[in-house]
């Protein structure tokens, strides 16, 4: 997991989403993003195969 600059990343992504980020909220947002980055690194530490499908499974309708 790259140690990218969250202070640069957060306002850019927020702008892309049209999400206004207030100056006062930024320290808390960055702290939580840093925590999420640690969690993502933990998730990434488990190697998965192409056969590992995501947990939510779509069902077209009840089987006839």
């Amino acid at each position: 997991m790259s140690d990218f600059d969250l202070a640069t990343y957060a306002p850019q992504v927020a702008a892309a989403l049209g999400l206004p980020l207030q100056e006062a909220h930024l320290p808390g947002v960055l702290m939580n993003l840093a925590l999420a980055r640690r969690m993502a690194a933990l998730v990434e530490s488990v190697p998965l195969t192409p056969q590992d499908e995501p947990a939510p499974v779509f069902v077209a309708g009840p089987a006839k």
Binding site: A10, H25, L30, N32, L33, A36, P54, P56
Partner: peptide, 24 residues
């Protein structure tokens, strides 16, 4: 608030990988 705001900014890959790991 700050957790929700941060949650809006997560890379899609992190969340999708989390859903695949969850199934495993």
């Amino acid at each position: 608030r700050d957790r929700f705001l941060a949650g809006a900014l997560l890379p899609a890959h992190w969340v999708q990988q989390a859903q695949r790991l969850r199934a495993r």
